[in-house]
Simulated assay, not measured.
Amino acid sequence: MNRDAVTCGGCVVSLAGAVAAPLVWLSSDRTRIHLGGGFENEGMDLGVLVTELPPVFLAGAALPVLVYTLLVRLLGGPGDASDRHG
């Protein structure tokens, strides 16, 4: 496998995770209640945008690329020990 293809794949997976994680977070019942989905805005707390959204976004970007990197290493992708000549 080409090293550029692996790098591009990691970027695509990271981008997909960074987009998907906040969408999944926004679709949860708990988040909808905090963002005004409660009865007459009861319990509305916009603090979740500061306290929960950044970690969700970062985890969505980082976790998929870490799993992708581990899979590439386990499946013998570029840069494994057999390719090194020293």
Rank of each mutant, 00 (worst) to 15 (best):
L63W: 04
V12E: 03
T31E: 04
A61M: 07
A18D: 00
L66K: 02
V50P: 04
R73N: 11
L53S: 04
G38W: 10
Y68P: 05
L53K: 04
V48I: 15
A62T: 08
S27W: 07
G47I: 08
V6D: 04
A59W: 07
L15H: 01
R73K: 15
P64T: 05
L63H: 01
A61L: 05
F57V: 09
M44V: 14
G9S: 11
G60M: 02
L15Q: 03
R84I: 13
A62Q: 07
H85P: 03
V13S: 02
D80F: 05
A59V: 10
M1H: 12
P78F: 03
E42K: 12
F57I: 08
A20D: 07
G77V: 05
G43A: 06
R3M: 10
A61F: 05
S27K: 10
V50R: 13
A16F: 04
A62K: 05
A81K: 15
Y68H: 14
I33W: 05
L70E: 12
L49E: 08
A59H: 06
P22Q: 02
R30H: 12
S28A: 12
G79L: 06
G37Q: 08
R73L: 15
G38R: 10
V12R: 03
L75N: 11
H34A: 14
G76C: 06
G37F: 04
D80G: 10
